[in-house]
Design a protein around this nucleic acid. Sequence first.
DNA 1: GGACACATGTAACGGGTTACATGATTTC
DNA 2: GAAATCATGTAACCCGTTACATGTGTCC
Lengths: 207, 207
Amino acid sequence: MEPLTTTSYAILCQLALKPWSAYELAEQKVRYFQYMWPRAQSGIYREIKHLADLGYAQPERSNVGKRQRTVYAITPQGLEALRAWLATPVARFSMECEATLRLFVAPLGTKEQLLATLEQVQAEAEEMLRFLHSIMQEYLEGRAPFQEQVYVRVLANDLFLEYLLTMQAWAKRTRQEMMQWYDLSPDGKDERALELVQRLSDRAVLT
Amino acid sequence: MEPLTTTSYAILCQLALKPWSAYELAEQKVRYFQYMWPRAQSGIYREIKHLADLGYAQPERSNVGKRQRTVYAITPQGLEALRAWLATPVARFSMECEATLRLFVAPLGTKEQLLATLEQVQAEAEEMLRFLHSIMQEYLEGRAPFQEQVYVRVLANDLFLEYLLTMQAWAKRTRQEMMQWYDLSPDGKDERALELVQRLSDRAVLT
DNA sequence: GGACACATGTAACGGGTTACATGATTTC
DNA sequence: GAAATCATGTAACCCGTTACATGTGTCC
């Protein structure tokens, strides 16, 4: 009855595939928690307990040597909750990019600072692109975890890829644009700016 | 000294342009708080007080009729803080898209549910695209607020546009792909999936 | 003068974070 | 057998949220 968060459902999604310990979910084992839905480790520990309290996950304590270990499995009620979730309206997608905010007060800083910011954006996009590429190789070689899910996962990775390429390309062309500037003042930049606005305006027309 | 959040700096950015009341910042007047950095109204009220406590913003109380009104102006220390911020490493960009998570457990639901989810993503992207288009028109007609900032703002809007187009195009082609499926089971979808993986893998190679 | 939208806030909760704690295993 | 790292968690703070409160113009 009580509404769960998307993070709760993300965990339930993982449990639907097989039982996991909180540690496994929180660490890099589940890679989409690193990139597609990053959350702090402690939040996962808390949330999975919450799921257990609701009866959506069944904890199973065992011992590895002297250390105790708790593995959670999804329950029939948990599966039911997941199914119900799929029928609800989806949460709005969103993006956060501090670099664009910095552009709004660019004239307060230096051109070098702004270029460095954009370089950082580009580098982070490229780091994730390399990671994504290695994942795609795993699928091609048939050795990915949950290889049998490739037909749906490729659709999610498609978005992730295009999003990263978008970020990378933007950082690149914005740097190039800015490198042609003498400084960050508005002087003489109006005409070119309106040209760009016109281009954006055209592209924003729905087809 | 104490580290502010990006939201604090987003507010400081606005104050750097001119003084505002919390109400003006929180409501739709500042459009990028709606789309580029959406935050709840009450958070803005709290954060701007915080900025005042730190001496980064100067509150000026006045009366409109019988109602009191607080307008905040940036202080020299506030400007200095903004400048210092521009020199720090930028926060990582991020995206959240619940729809991709739902793909991971797609077989639990129905094809219709998934298609509806994707339609919703597409519709939301298109709504924002229409909004962005109207903004671009304002610039072209020279009547945008802060028109003189067009040369930097267009760079931010460029990213926003490409990001929205990416979301829209993805939702569209994923729907089309899925409409060719008989159901959500893996049966017979492997070959096509690996074809798509190969394409993603190729695109992910850095140039 | 009642309804309703505008303007300006406060209260309280929860989910996200960082930081810390502690025992086990491996390494050298 | 000391150090480093792995595995498993707890504590506490803070940002973001929703919900509520209340006064003020405006419309009819």
